[in-house]
């Protein structure tokens, strides 16, 4: 049933089936999400700038999610030697990098009015910046080695080593005293954010992940085509 997650041919077929409905759903979700963001209440302290959250938080989550997906696929690829894992690693690394850049940029635009500075050296910000560097190194490694096997496996092992950073990012706000606030939503208890702000946030998260999914499908299909031509 889930063969399309490791088999390029089945992935192509599956992607062809879902692609057009996906575009429709994505545009609907974006429109609804933007409307909800427009209608969402202003914060009593932050005013209008609270709406940066609806960009900042989804892109941060997706930056982490992209890396987690790459980690899982690296494990699968190294253990079972599935070529599709390496296709995924090559295809979605730039997407994760873009989400990380988006998160950092929106965060610094949010930090300037709220904290009074574009950048502070606190644990959360630094660890996300390190995540960006790891993504950039992965992209560079894609253009470094001559032999394709060496390139792919080196990247996979490097991704596994770099995944140490993921729990550090997640728990940095709990382990250290940071200027960045701790997580409002991902606790096991009920969320510490009001429902009127939670709804647009979740819809925007879904919209962001669908956009990321569409770009990922396009990139993966292009990568499969390229490999078919070269082999």
């Amino acid at each position: 049933m889930f063969n399309f997650l490791i088999n390029p041919n089945k992935f192509n077929k599956f992607a062809d089936v879902i692609f057009k409905p996906l575009i429709v759903i994505t545009s609907l979700t974006i429109i609804v999400g933007l409307l909800l963001v427009y209608l969402s209440p202003l914060d009593y302290q932050q005013g209008l700038t609270v709406k940066i959250m609806y960009i900042h938080v989804p892109s941060a989550w997706l930056a982490l999610l992209t890396y987690a997906i790459m980690t899982i696929y690296s494990v699968i690829g190294l253990a079972f030697k599935t070529p599709f894992s390496f296709i995924i690693n090559k295809a979605i690394a730039p997407i994760g990098a873009v989400f990380t850049i988006l998160c950092l940029l929106s965060g610094s635009m949010w930090g300037k009015p709220m904290w009074g500075t574009w950048w502070v050296w606190d644990a959360r910000l630094t660890s996300v910046a390190i995540l960006l560097v790891i993504y950039v190194i992965i992209i560079f490694l894609n253009y470094t080695f001559e032999s394709r096997e060496v390139r792919e496996k080196t990247i996979a092992i490097f991704i596994l080593i770099g995944s140490i950073n993921l729990p550090i990012i997640k728990f940095s706000v709990d382990w250290w005293n940071t200027l960045h606030q701790p997580a409002s939503i991902s606790k096991l208890s009920s969320p510490s954010i009001d429902i009127s702000m939670l709804q647009p946030l979740l819809v925007m998260t879904v919209a962001f992940s669908l956009v990321g999914l569409i770009i990922a499908i396009l990139r993966i299909k292009a990568e499969i085509l390229m490999r078919k031509n070269y082999l």
Binding site: V133, I134, S147
Partner: peptide
């Protein structure tokens, strides 16, 4: 990691620094 890397020499130092 960079045993077969013939072109991009800086990336080894970058990994250590990172």
């Amino acid at each position: 990691m960079n045993l077969l890397n013939k072109t991009n020499f800086a990336i080894g130092s970058i990994v250590v620094l990172l």
